[in-house]
Amino acid sequence: MVSTIEDVIKFLNQHGFSVTTAESCTAGLVAALMADISGCGTALQSGYIVYTEEAKNSCLDVSLQTIQAFGLTSEEVAREMAVGALKKSSSQLVVAVTGTAESNDSLDGVICFSYGLRTAMGYRLMSETRKFEGKRNHVRKAAAMHAIISLPEVYEKIQLHPEIFT
Rank of each mutant, 00 (worst) to 15 (best):
I164P: 01
I5S: 09
V50Y: 09
I9D: 00
G39F: 01
F17L: 10
S38Y: 05
Y123C: 03
C25I: 01
A147Y: 05
L117S: 06
A144G: 08
E163G: 15
A142Q: 15
S90M: 09
Y155R: 09
K87L: 13
S91V: 10
H161K: 12
V30P: 01
D105N: 15
A101T: 11
A144R: 00
G47K: 02
E54H: 14
C25T: 02
A143Y: 00
L151T: 01
I158F: 05
S46T: 06
A85N: 09
E156H: 12
G41P: 01
H15A: 08
T66Y: 11
T52I: 08
M126E: 11
T100N: 14
S150W: 06
T20H: 07
S150K: 15
F11G: 02
G28D: 02
E133G: 04
Y115S: 05
G28T: 02
S38C: 11
K157W: 05
E163W: 14
Q68Y: 10
K157I: 02
T73H: 09
Y48M: 01
G134Y: 05
E54C: 04
N137E: 15
T4W: 14
C40Y: 08
A32R: 08
A120W: 10
Y155S: 02
I148T: 02
A27V: 04
A43D: 01
S58W: 14
G116Q: 09
D36T: 03
E75M: 10
G134M: 01
L33D: 00
A85Y: 09
T21W: 06
G109P: 00
E128N: 07
T166A: 12
H146F: 11
M81Q: 07
T119L: 07
L125V: 10
I149P: 04
